[in-house]
Design a protein around this nucleic acid. Structure first.
Lengths: 337, 337
DNA sequence: TAAAGTAGCGAGAACGTTCCCGGAAACAAC
DNA sequence: GTTGTTTCCGGGAACGTTCTCGCTACTTTA
């Protein structure tokens, strides 16, 4: 069971010098002769020496591990954020330990309880629960946390998110500019901050253009494509039907489009649809989906960079970074060909 | 910089007993009085004790970390495999450290060189390079490796893959059964084993049905959608054009479909298309894509289960598991409506 | 030429845990 | 009352590394 690796003791013995010297030589070169250092480096390479991070972590109590907590990894947004995180982490010699909550708040809770804080230097979190209080204890233990995308409001730390409000505003404004007047909104879970933000952007755009917000045209449910389909079914039971839909994300927008197609509704001319995310699918489907592109990769990069700063400096002042989205106009919002 | 956590020493001191006893009490209950054990457990909970995995790992030289090496995480297949891996790992108390190669063999090489073997109990790998020799050293160090999806042939260890040959055979047979006779194949990088397998399945299905394989109708390039588009451009320069395409994966199939659409070719009636993967997109696009569904989630689960067995038993006999794919018939291969 | 400074190195504790071994106490058996 | 057995607990080494301190030998300064 127990494995045996080359250690600095082996190097020291073979070279007839002390472990202290080997240790110094392998890190900074201070207090060690150039020749000695080169001999150590050569021997280390020859023996294929690999440092034992458990030992280093034990004495330095840092681990070069970063925990990433996400609802899932199978969708475009999160996997792209992760790729951004990975780029920065890899460059800085950090490993990423990925935890998935599967959109279950209970699992998120349990995960944090079980988390071995001593094997983590920091945490990058996109919340599953509507609140972030359970991360307070992590922070108190001196483990920096950076929230991205789904952020909370209770815990004082850095956050990175897209500009949900303005994105939603712009999306809705675009529908209005395209000639639609009866605009519905199919949103995410009502408890989550970004659901509220996007809804607010939608509502304010309506108001600014003198359009009334009809409560029955605003539906909140889950994130999935199926939810999008169900939401449309619900909307289409109403006596007065909308002529456009702003969806909280592309998956729901696509669900909505499928439901509309099934009803024989022409997307674009009859009913306009705008999503949010810019999932690659949105450019492939037919008609292609107008959407707000989220800077997912950037969000991953910036989150990780901020976390590294928190790790490096105990009292790094928390920052809140908001990145703008970008309206991508495609066919699903073209009323007049 | 240095953080302070509750240790078993603190528990021992507060309870007036030795660290050995606390250590025993927190693990198996053998050799420790029930009362003592309960007192320890209570105190540990009260102080919010969390074990230090660096220390445990140092003495036991196991870490409860599994490394996962993949080309990327942003596509459906790999993110789903990862989710399967995560399920098993989480149940068994293992953390996952995810490394991405970005489809760069050099980066894969460098990654393995840098890998701190002492902080890993095992490795789950989908190859980026066409060969697996560089993992030999990892195995020699006593770190079990399990390959999935893109497996190699040199290193003797467990492998988990889908049945590429039969999947490709079935896909091609389906095209023939549907009435297509001039079937082209747009494949992955020629060096990779599964590219060859799928190509062979395609070739054998042609042969079995008495159709000639035309070398100019077989194109090998990368994996991306753009590659699929380019491959079609290349095929459509030929004097005799194919009337069907079997693509090595859905992304290339979709690229091909976009290129065909751009040329005004009707997909289905004029040219049949079959992919491989069953990416969710394939059911959403129009026309929907006929494809071979890969058991991605299952592959993740089984790979991780096998790896855990290798970790538990030094001389666990390597297994090669092949999972069947499943033909999903949709619109893109419907010649006669 | 003596004092002071500096470069380079080694000894040994420390990090938090497990594990091996020895021993005390309690009890049973002769 | 001695011996043996069991139950429970403590001491201390070990894991591989860093880090602090102190020592030697050489160089510089006055």
């Amino acid at each position: 069971m127990r494995r045996q690796f080359i250690t600095i003791k082996d190097i020291a013995r073979e070279l007839g010098i002390s472990v202290s010297t080997v240790s110094r030589a392998l890190r900074d070169a201070y207090d060690v002769n150039r020749e000695t250092r080169e001999k150590v480096l050569a021997k280390a390479a020859e023996l294929h020496y690999k440092p034992n991070f458990n030992a280093i972590g034990l004495v330095q109590s840092n681990t070069h591990n970063i925990g990433v907590v996400m609802p899932g990894i199978t969708n475009y947004y999160f996997s792209t954020v992760f790729t951004g995180i990975e780029e920065v982490a890899y460059e800085n010699g950090y490993n990423l330990i990925l935890f998935l909550t599967n959109d279950s708040p209970e699992r998120e809770q349990r995960l944090i309880q079980d988390l071995s804080l001593s094997s983590l230097d920091g945490l990058l979190v996109s919340l599953t629960s509507p609140e972030d209080r359970h991360y307070g204890q992590v922070l108190e233990n001196g483990i920096p946390v950076v929230f991205f995308d789904r952020v909370g409001g209770d815990v004082r730390t850095s956050k990175v998110m897209q500009d949900d409000y303005n994105g939603a505003f712009e999306a809705t404004q675009h529908l209005i500019d395209s000639g639609y007047r009866h605009i519905a909104h199919i949103g995410g879970p009502a408890g989550l901050a970004f659901s509220r933000q996007r809804r607010q952007g939608y509502a304010d755009a309506l108001e600014k253009n003198g359009l009334a917000l009809r409560e029955e045209w605003v539906v909140h449910s889950g994130f999935s494509q199926e939810c999008g389909q169900q939401d449309v079914e619900q909307l289409w039971k109403l006596p007065v039907k909308p002529d456009a839909i702003f969806a909280v994300n592309d998956r729901k927008a696509i669900g909505a489009m499928l439901a509309l197609k099934a009803r024989g509704v022409q997307i674009g001319p009859e009913v306009g649809v705008v999503g949010f995310t810019n999932d690659p699918v949105s450019g492939i489907i037919s008609p292609s989906l107008t959407t707000i592109a989220e800077p997912a990769f950037e969000i991953g990069k910036i989150s990780c960079e901020l976390l590294l700063k928190h790790i490096a400096r105990k009292h790094f002042e928390p920052k809140a970074v908001t990145l703008p989205g970008k309206l991508i106009i495609r066919e699903s919002s073209r009323k007049h060909p």
